[in-house]
Design a binder for these strands. Structure first.
Lengths: 114, 114, 114, 114
DNA sequence: GTGGTCTAGACCACC
DNA sequence: GTGGTCTAGACCACA
């Protein structure tokens, strides 16, 4: 796994897990690897993975069974989708359009580029 | 001047200067304030302003006259535009489209939203 | 490490690292000392070392792994060589020849001296 | 007159005067412009010109008649030539050759380039 | 007056 | 532990 060094690794791990949930590679009540295992897999400190799991757990996307591991929460895909869609529509899209405008790219050109 | 605490001040200073160059508020061979003056104006340490100036100087957007001050370089607007356009096309646009795709937004919907 | 007081320390650090890259004492993906460690070693403030590292990072000679340290970038030797060769051919050589000419040294004499 | 901002202007003025002496554009006992006049001509602060004159005066290349101005000293050309030739042979030439060697440029190539 | 360099020390996010 | 950013203040060369 390769990381964009401009973005914290723990956030990149979160993104990657969310994508896999959206793509249904992993589903409700599937177990995800332990922080140690996952960390070894992707060449990252287990502490960093733990931080990602903690954040996801906070937002109810995954849950923890003590002594067993982390699992995808029921309804996880919905939550992820909603959260991301909301953020996308309310924040990213307007920013993106504004930016293009500033650079002198018309909407027609933009549509073309897409 | 107010700062978004999530972004380094020296980068915000760079952005703000670039915007003013794009808006042609400041033009080729105009002098920009000294690091001390500018720093005092916006309530920032002169060293921080100097850092911004140095970066801009490295990229050829401004230039220095010894003992006198910093000036907008000829062709500065061009350079700023190119740099930003390049970043937009090569980084932001692909990311944006990929993100939309992931969220199940079709190109038609996207065009609609824009 | 000793410094020539006529040249900024941070530039001398850059030069020294470039030489060691050219000499292949340090190679691709080797880690270089942390700013604190290196600074202590050579009796220089860590900030000064950081400045050198930042410049080298900007030119793609080294890269950073978050929270871990700086590493020699792939192709670093190439980049250093190119940069230096370019500077030599475009700046030093013409200056040198012009200087010799001014002093009344003919090309034949110059070749002889070399 | 244009200045290379990497070299102090007062040194560039010295160089330019030495060159004109070597080229015999100005000769022994010729008067050179007053600091004010020269400064205005080349768009430089008179203080800066004064600094150049002072240095040249120190090395006996020019001399001062109080209240009248600065003049090229007798034997100025000789002095300039000797000083520069000495510096050239003892410092610049070896440095130059060493640098070329370091960059993997053979003597034959170097001769070719010249 | 200008910028350039350097030190010292602080706080932060990240690993 | 790592680097990233910022402040404060010093000294210097240059104009």
């Amino acid at each position: 796994m390769e990381f964009d060094s401009n973005k914290p690794i723990y956030l990149q791990i979160i993104d990657s897990l969310c994508e896999r949930i959206l793509a249904e590679e992993i589903k409700e009540d599937d177990r995800i690897p332990s922080v140690r295992e996952f960390g070894a897999d992707i060449g990252v400190n287990p502490n960093t993975v733990a931080r990602s799991y903690e954040k996801l757990s906070d937002s109810g996307i995954i849950y923890n069974k003590r002594g067993i591991g982390y699992f995808i929460a029921p309804g996880a895909k919905q939550k992820v989708l909603e959260a991301q869609k909301k953020q996308f529509l309310e924040e990213e899209l307007p920013k993106f359009v504004a930016r293009a405008k500033l650079l002198g790219i018309s909407k027609e050109e933009l549509v073309e580029l897409i």
